[in-house]
């Protein structure tokens, strides 16, 4: 009888101390960062793929916390260096550029991970509004 009571107490203690309160707190969504140098890996004009037809290879856009610089310009939403910002740092759906001595220009933005690599997809019209360009940017290693 003593043996049964002793075993029961041990089991009860084990069960009590093995249980912990489940941590159900939702981890905070991180602020998205795009700092670094990005290149164009895909370019569409009105749905037509221009990636291998026009030389986009030297273009770079270098993002820091709030500013950007452009190297080897191609038709883009802005043509001068300036400042940038997201509509929402945690859940960005729009990126805005304010070039020096210019008004703010915005673009819808997708931020997918493709093959384990973060891409930025932006759409804009550098010339006539009837012509829409979609660039896929990828960070330069």
């Amino acid at each position: 009888m003593k043996k049964i009571i002793g075993t029961s107490i041990i089991i009860l203690l084990l069960v009590n101390f093995s249980c912990k309160k489940e941590n159900t707190a939702i981890p905070p969504e991180p602020v998205k960062t795009i700092s670094g140098s990005w290149k164009i890996i895909k370019a569409l004009r009105n749905g037509t793929d221009l990636t291998n037809r026009f030389d986009f290879s030297a273009f770079r856009i270098n993002f820091s916390d709030s500013t950007y610089t452009i190297e080897n310009l191609v038709p883009f939403i802005v043509s001068k260096n300036g400042k940038w910002n997201f509509d929402d740092p945690k859940y960005p759906f729009k990126i805005s550029f304010t070039a020096q001595n210019s008004v703010e220009k915005g673009s819808t933005m997708l931020y997918p991970v493709v093959d384990g690599v973060r891409n930025i997809i932006i759409s804009f019209s550098p010339g006539c509004t009837l012509n829409t360009y979609q660039y896929t940017l990828q960070k330069v290693n």
């Binding site: 004009r45 009105n46 006539c128 360009y133």
Partner: peptide, 12 residues
């Protein structure tokens, strides 16, 4: 192409 374009578009 495109038929409507400015000098800041890529034209073909």
């Amino acid at each position: 192409e495109p038929r409507t374009a400015s000098d800041n578009d890529i034209i073909t």
